[in-house]
Amino acid sequence: METGIDYSKIALLTTVANFDLYDKTRSYQPAGIRKLVIDGRGGMYGLDSIFYAFEELPLKDVKWLILADEDVLFLENRALIKIIEEMESANYTVSGVRDGGCLNHRNFNPYIPNTFFCVLDYQNISTIYSRKEIQKQQYSNPKEFTDDLNHLHVGFDANSLYEPYYCFFLWLKRKNHKFLFLNADLLHPNTDDLATKVYALDNKPFLIHTWYARAYGKNAAQTKRIDAIIDRYASDSNDHAEEAEIFKDEFFKYKLGLRKLKKRIQNKLGKYFDD
């Protein structure tokens, strides 16, 4: 397909907690672009993955960074390029699905995308990136943002701070970066209250998110549900799928353990002084 987008400047990043599931979905990821994996089996995901990507991964030649979980099944890869073209032409920094107002089981902040699938203008963001600034943004101000939410068809909480990674996107919004939000709906609304289809700019589904990747291979019902979706909807796999570059912070599980210990101590001290 003719496009002005340089594929060599696109990278798809998956933080993988379940490699058994990733092995099934990887070959359906878009062809011709760089694939990266953060090994998330030590507990890294969400905001920690974002920090790790911006601070540790070799991304200096990347313009567009796509975040996609291991339980995302791509149906139409050309649609992804169309989204990137729209982002480039209209100066969007972020594209994704609202974490409130679209799906019944995600009734949180509608101003923020869920990171199961998200496209970032990495080149733009990296020039202003500051972990310290980002970490200070996990707060809400009533009526701070002016997005028109009247079209949203399910509940949401405009002041929700449910996910720790919200601060990253709140930081960008407070710097007046533009977000391109995609429509989404349940894949099987009568039988499955989790699986999600995401619509491209032409309002045709281009990916499915099964949810509950961590339960795959551990919970029989969730494993059966996810396998049924893959078997039914998987398009032709990319027989020449690029091997992913795999990265892992070998010390993260220890850092996470220390962080949890610090939080427990702070909670105990707080309770002690409250008493």
Score class of each variant (00 low, 15 high):
residue 253 K to S: 10
residue 254 Y to G: 03
residue 4 G to E: 10
residue 63 K to P: 04
residue 31 A to T: 10
residue 106 R to K: 13
residue 160 S to Y: 10
residue 66 I to E: 00
residue 266 Q to I: 10
residue 253 K to P: 00
residue 5 I to K: 00
residue 197 K to R: 15
residue 178 K to F: 08
residue 263 K to G: 10
residue 79 A to L: 03
residue 154 V to R: 04
residue 85 E to T: 00
residue 17 A to T: 11
residue 65 L to D: 00
residue 53 A to P: 02
residue 40 G to L: 01
residue 47 L to S: 05
residue 171 W to K: 03
residue 272 Y to H: 14
residue 60 K to G: 04
residue 47 L to Y: 07
residue 79 A to V: 05
residue 211 W to K: 06
residue 195 A to H: 02
residue 20 D to I: 10
residue 64 W to I: 01
residue 227 D to P: 06
residue 259 R to Q: 13
residue 192 D to F: 12
residue 194 L to K: 08
residue 83 I to T: 05
residue 54 F to M: 11
residue 155 G to P: 00
residue 158 A to R: 08
residue 158 A to E: 13
residue 236 D to A: 10
residue 38 I to A: 00
residue 163 E to G: 06
residue 274 D to R: 11
residue 6 D to E: 12
residue 26 R to W: 13
residue 13 L to I: 08
residue 249 D to Q: 14
residue 103 L to N: 03
residue 218 K to R: 15
residue 195 A to G: 09
residue 247 F to E: 02
residue 142 P to V: 12
residue 229 I to E: 05
residue 87 M to D: 00
residue 199 Y to Q: 01
residue 28 Y to S: 06
residue 188 H to V: 09
residue 159 N to W: 07
residue 87 M to W: 02
residue 166 Y to R: 02
residue 251 F to I: 14
residue 216 Y to T: 10
residue 40 G to W: 06
residue 234 A to Y: 08
residue 247 F to P: 02
residue 85 E to F: 03
residue 140 S to W: 05
residue 235 S to K: 12
residue 117 F to V: 01
residue 196 T to V: 15
residue 223 T to Y: 09
residue 270 G to W: 12
residue 71 D to S: 05
residue 135 Q to F: 15
residue 90 A to V: 04
residue 243 E to L: 15
residue 136 K to C: 12
residue 107 N to W: 09
residue 150 N to A: 15
residue 51 F to P: 00
residue 168 F to W: 04
residue 237 S to F: 12
residue 199 Y to G: 03
residue 16 V to E: 02
residue 35 K to W: 06
residue 58 P to I: 13
residue 214 R to A: 15
residue 20 D to H: 12
residue 220 A to Q: 15
residue 18 N to M: 07
residue 9 K to G: 02
